[in-house]
Amino acid sequence: MMKSSVSNCPVPSEQQPLNEYEELKSSWLFRDCTLNLREYITKIAWIWGISWLVAFPVAAASFAPHKQSAQFIISSIAGSSVGVVLVVARLYLGWSYIRDRLMSPIIFYEESGWYDGQNWMKPQEVLTRDRLIVSYSIKPIITRLKMTFAGLAVLFVAGTIVWHLV
């Protein structure tokens, strides 16, 4: 049934949204979003820890740890959170791009280079399949990433309040 529509697809294999989705889902950074909540939080904590290795010396150079310990701790936590924000932003942009390609009824593709772009109208069965993938696989990932952003925003606000109280 779907085989005939997909086999008649003029879009090169590597530019077909379903193949782009499968590739993204299996790539080392993006597959972390598909893990269960505990494993996902563990991966985010590892990213934070690696970012802390950079933020710690900067915070120590800015605030003497033995004299201004509260400012040192808050600034090292905030600095290491910047790395997490950058990674989560990259994840969000990647998954959003794939979501948009799957949801779109028309796919732009390049046949052999940047100068010869074409559009392909998805058949209804392909569009339905792609939209089901978005609904059941990609929307939960994007929701998780939005919640991660919200959690980071809450931590930044809390850190700012504590900074002003200290």
Rank of each mutant, 00 (worst) to 15 (best):
I98C: 06
L165F: 05
H66K: 14
S80I: 02
R90Y: 15
G83N: 08
R99G: 00
A70Y: 08
P65Y: 07
V84Y: 00
H66T: 11
D116Q: 03
F56E: 06
R129I: 08
N8K: 12
A64K: 13
F156V: 07
V58C: 05
W48M: 13
I77T: 05
V85I: 13
F63M: 04
L86C: 13
R38M: 14
E23V: 09
I47M: 02
V166N: 06
L24C: 07
E111V: 13
E39M: 10
R38C: 15
K25N: 02
T148R: 01
H66L: 09
C9Y: 06
G151E: 11
T143S: 13
L152V: 03
W95I: 01
Q124K: 09
E111T: 12
I44N: 03
I106P: 00
Q118T: 03
W114A: 11
S96N: 03
A89E: 07
Y115T: 13
Q118K: 12
E110M: 13
D100A: 11
L102Q: 02
K146Q: 05
V87E: 01
Y97N: 13
M147Y: 09
A61P: 02
K43S: 06
I47H: 00
E110Q: 12
S112P: 03
I98F: 10
G117P: 06
I142N: 01
I44L: 01
Q15L: 11
D130Q: 04
S26L: 05
I74M: 13
S76L: 03
M2K: 09
D32N: 15
A150L: 14
Y109V: 00
V126G: 06
T128W: 13
L91N: 02
T160A: 15
